[in-house]
Design a protein around this nucleic acid. Structure first.
Lengths: 347, 347
DNA sequence: TTGAAAGCGTTACCAT
DNA sequence: ATGGTAACGCTTTCAA
């Protein structure tokens, strides 16, 4: 029977390096950590030994005794890693992190409060240096006992409740308001708003913007149709099909999200009404410009959100403590492409 | 001056638990690790103490001495976390991993060999349990000295060179062949193939499938136009614009990739020829079915790729060693939507 | 400027 | 079935 290969390949240790360089263990430690009080000549000798023995410090062991433990790792919780908006944020954060030799754990929330807590627990257990979170639970108070008090946290896309922390998100209210105003400006008076579940903060914010715009134009909210609870394109398609079949159907639609827009476009196509019912989506879609008519959207800036969130997190990390919570609002851009510039039949 | 908060919040240790339960340290260790030889009564007492003191074992410290170290962490290297194809794979892998309480480090390759090596180094330094990699370097031989010999590795999307390991990817040759055959079947005789840089394995494979189909139909490869080095939609658009302007321009286009398809559609629209030049893309696009004409594609199955890759990785992990390398080929699906069913002018 | 010894929180080994 | 002690690879403390 052949002997099994050693399950624990003997790594070189700091001890061997010290011996090889003819110095004490602590001096090697000083060198690799750039601590002062090492004679240049000694340092050089140590570095040569490290090189020669191809030693790499064991980060895990180092953190065991260190007071200010740094795993050079952060936890990122996204709506879903496969959602294009989230994936773009992810990419931006990764780029900043990679630059600092920090690795990123990525998880998907799936708008499930239980997953939110589980993900944070998993991150904390792995001793990440900081957290960038998308939240959906009714309250984030649980973080106070789950997360070490010094660990920086930045929320993205949605504001937390009962927990003060940095937050980076789009200007949802203004975006929805712009979209709605835009449609009203083209003469529409009967509008529909399609939004996700109201548990989701952005859905509520976008509804707020929608209502503000109606108010500006002196339109009674009752004349508008607001459909909520739409979390995928199938539900959205069904909703649009039914709402357009009703009497006094809306002449324009504001979609509160990515997947809802896709569902709405499907429905309009199916009804053959994509040229006479106006539509503006929230969040951009790839190929939206190549559709006929092009799909007008309020585009978010996911890369900017990621950039800013990462910058905040690393600022706290560099400071060694949570900085004063700052809410950062990233602008959105209304992109007219055709579908949002359709006039109502009567106008 | 207010005292700084203790930077190292004193965690409860196994020692305190042992004392509280009135047992030895090792017995507590036995209980949490489900080792045999603990009396049920003792175990219950220990568990109660753990509960009461809210102790959580320090995974880092545990791994320090453990022979079979498990960080419950894997490293995933993708083309780019923001590419929809890669993001879908990511999601599938995450779902499998989350189920086993394993966290996923995700990084982007950006088709840069240097990033490939750097990412693997970063993963290994953090002592991941396994690797799922997309590769682009000319050889993966470097893995032999960079990665511990027992660490499982699964390649996705592209085959490695000079390194034997599990590989999970689409049937690229057959996919390209199907697409090409499909166009030839509609009567096209002058085809163009647009592919990414030839350093990329999938580009070469898809070219192979393209040429095989031409051969089947007895068409000389010289009559086809093959443009390579197309890595984004801008380059692809430019390429299509120029190739369609040339004499004896192709009547049908096979696009070798996501972004190339987008560029090609843009170009065809710009020329107003989207209804008379046929196009089949490799890899599906969201909204492709809503375009006019719908964009026919050879769709990959990213979720299946992710599922299978994760299954292989965890199989190796469970076995405690790298299993015999198996190449797994995932089928592709030709989805006709209109653009691929356009006939040539003369036919 | 340097290093010996103690300690980090756990698992491995070997008694009992 | 149980526990004492060494050990993991490093940082910290403190004396030299």
């Amino acid at each position: 029977m052949t002997p099994l290969s050693d399950p624990r390949p003997s790594r070189t240790t700091i001890r061997e390096v010290a011996q090889h360089a003819g110095v004490g263990i602590k001096t090697v430690s000083r060198v690799v950590n750039n601590e002062p009080n090492v004679a240049p000549a000694t340092a050089a000798r140590v570095r040569a030994s490290i090189e020669e023995l191809r030693w790499e410090p064991d980060a895990l062991a180092a953190n065991l005794r260190r007071t200010t433990t740094r795993t050079r790792t952060i936890g990122l919780l996204l709506g879903s890693v496969s959602n294009p908006f989230a994936a773009a944020i992810h990419r931006a954060i990764e780029d900043v992190a990679a630059h600092r030799d920090v690795a990123v754990f990525a998880s998907s929330l799936d708008d499930d409060p239980a997953r939110e807590v589980a993900a944070v627990e998993a991150f904390v257990r792995r001793k990440v240096d900081g957290l960038i979170l998308t939240c959906v639970a009714a309250s984030q108070a649980y973080l106070r006992e789950l997360v070490p008090p010094d660990m920086p946290i930045v929320f993205i896309d949605r504001e937390p409740a009962e927990f003060a922390a940095d937050t980076v998100h789009s200007d949802n209210v203004e975006g929805a308001r712009m979209a709605t105003r835009h449609l009203l400006g083209f003469g529409h008076r009967r509008l529909a708003l399609l939004i996700d579940r109201r548990e989701i903060w952005t859905a509520r914010e976008r509804e707020r913007g929608f209502l503000l715009a109606l108010d500006e134009f002196g339109i009674a909210p009752e004349t508008a149709t607001i459909l909520d609870g739409l979390s995928d394109h199938v539900a959205a398609e069904r909703a649009v099909l039914s709402v357009l079949g009703a009497p006094n159907a809306p002449t324009a639609i504001v979609s509160g999200q990515n997947l809802i827009t896709v569902g709405a476009v499907h429905a309009l196509r199916k009804l053959g009404r994509h040229r006479d019912v106006a539509l503006i989506g929230f969040d951009d879609l790839e190929l939206a410009d190549l559709m006929d008519p092009g799909v007008s959207v309020v585009a978010q800036r996911p890369q900017e959100i990621g950039d800013v969130a990462a910058a905040r997190l690393f600022a706290s990390l560099d400071a060694g403590r949570r900085l004063d919570p700052a809410p950062i609002i990233v602008p959105v851009d209304l992109i007219p492409r055709g579908s949002g510039e359709i006039r109502p039949p009567s106008a």
